[in-house]
Amino acid sequence: MAETQLTEAGYLEKTPRVSEWRRFRRVFFSRGVVVFGLVVLVLVLFTAIFAEWLAPYDPYKTGVAKSLAQPSSEHWLGADTLGRDTLSRLIYGSRTALQVGFVSVLISGVIGIPLGMIAGYSGTIVNNLIMRTMDAMMCFPMLLFALVLAAVLGSGIWNVIIALSVATIPGYARVTHGLALSIKENDYILAQKSLGSDNIRTIFRHILPNAFPPLIVLMTMQLGNLILAEAGLSFLGIGIEPPGAAWGAMVNSGYQYLKISPWLSFAPCLAIMLVVFAFNMVGDGLRDALDPKLRGLL
């Protein structure tokens, strides 16, 4: 799902809190694909962290002798036109992929969640101002929004991250807003209020824990979409600057060599697919394990 829209209706009922770790584990690990996704993610994370040690070569080192080298025992996935080892670039690319994914999710979450929370918890004017702005942002398809923003900001991985983050803010704001609204009406918070508990404390003590399951699921699934979006932007010429390695950019510069060196584009493409798949599966698993009610909404 590229963009997940949540109607406020989904949260009219109080979402049950999941606290039983055992139930979570049982449900989460019951599906093979989910476990597979988790294993993939752990491996990719490991690869990204230890890229320096895992990569057989310097991913930026060019060399005419290795230009478009075919796969061999030295270069398992051959080398690109500048003689750079594909496997090493693939390994370093995992870093870019996770960076784009995690940092974007972090930024958009950090901005979007409080916005939704504030909107849900404040008066009509502020609420409307924030939520209508979010609605307006959601009227722009993510890729177009990111494309225009990236054109404004210029190329480079950080600008792509900023563009993707801004484009995904409204998703988080909407989910949190819906939750805040529904939870606000719940008896126990009303009770808290009457007891004189202040707003901020209510938000942290009661709303955030309730908001956690849907948000974590949304974030996980969003990670996959962000990586796909980065690939799309690369194809259009907006992305990481040389000599950096990013999977989307590798597919894009590699597909010219489809006939003589298909691995140059297939390898990074498979990497993208695998990671996006893994994020989706883990997202599914988290959803089922944390709160099956979210099915159909996330």
Partner: peptide, 10 residues
């Protein structure tokens, strides 16, 4: 699974 993961341009 392929459908939701493959980059459109590829």
């Amino acid at each position: 699974y392929v459908g939701i993961t493959i980059p459109v341009f590829f």
